[in-house]
């Protein structure tokens, strides 16, 4: 555990930009609730990306102007959204056919913990007495969709979120492809975690100190 210190590394907006840079033109993308939603604002010029929300919309647009909200047009986080020209609606079984059947290309999710082998924990802290709620988290990681995790590198208390083994209940085993944090971009490969890029002013050793799992330098 590392104590609080001055802010270095990427901003949340930078992190969202890093994720967006790895989403190719023409991709169908599901964005999780919270930080992942910011990715939509950073798609590079010239690329067209189609957003899926699992409650039944392909072609999700930005939030509506005030006063234009429609209670029957919402996203998976139950926030008001819009539909772009060319959007379509479908029922829940079709929506999860797109997910589980690997028709969606990329899913961007938040995380409580990611393990060195790509295990993901993002639905429950397993706290006694908490009401368990899973939503679509386990379905999103069940297929072969690319799973991008966007998350601060450590918890508010400074605990590593990239760990040897998840201590929270798992969402899926060996499912994460890339981790985008405020300190680094880390690819999960068969033989371990490879630091692909470091935030400006951040060293490999600095990131490793804040990571429980072993990191490797890109060859």
């Amino acid at each position: 555990m590392v104590s609080k210190e001055e802010k270095i590394g990427w901003s949340v907006s930078d992190m969202a930009r890093n994720v967006a840079a790895d989403i190719p033109n023409g991709a169908y993308v599901n964005l999780g609730i919270g930080m992942p939603e910011l990715v939509a604002g950073h798609v590079p010029e010239g690329r067209e990306v189609i957003y899926h929300t699992e409650n039944g919309l392909l072609g999700m647009g930005p939030a509506p102007a005030e006063g234009q909200e429609d209670p029957e047009l919402i996203n998976a986080g139950k926030k008001h959204v819009t539909a772009i020209p060319g959007a379509c609606y479908f029922h829940h079984a079709d929506s999860f056919t797109m997910i589980r059947g690997n028709h969606i290309d990329i899913c961007v999710l938040g995380a409580f913990q990611v393990a060195g082998n790509g295990d993901l924990a993002n639905w429950s802290t397993g706290a006694p007495g908490a009401i368990p709620a899973v939503g679509g988290a386990m379905d999103l990681v069940a297929g072969d969709i690319k799973i991008f995790v966007i998350s601060k590198h450590t918890t508010k208390e400074g605990e590593p979120k990239v760990v040897k083994e998840c201590t929270y209940p798992l969402t899926g085993k060996a499912v994460v492809d890339t981790i985008y944090t405020d300190l680094a971009i880390i690819d999960v490969k068969d033989d371990g975690l490879y630091v692909r890029e470091l935030a400006p002013g951040v060293t490999f050793e600095y990131v490793q100190e804040r990571t429980e799992a072993e990191l490797k330098r890109n060859p």
């Binding site: 699992e54 029922h91 829940h92 999860f96 997910i99 589980r100 709620a133 899973v134 939503g135 386990m138």
Partner: peptide
């Protein structure tokens, strides 16, 4: 009975 959303739908 807690069921993942896609499993519930299917």
């Amino acid at each position: 009975e807690l069921v993942p959303q896609g499993t519930l739908a299917e």
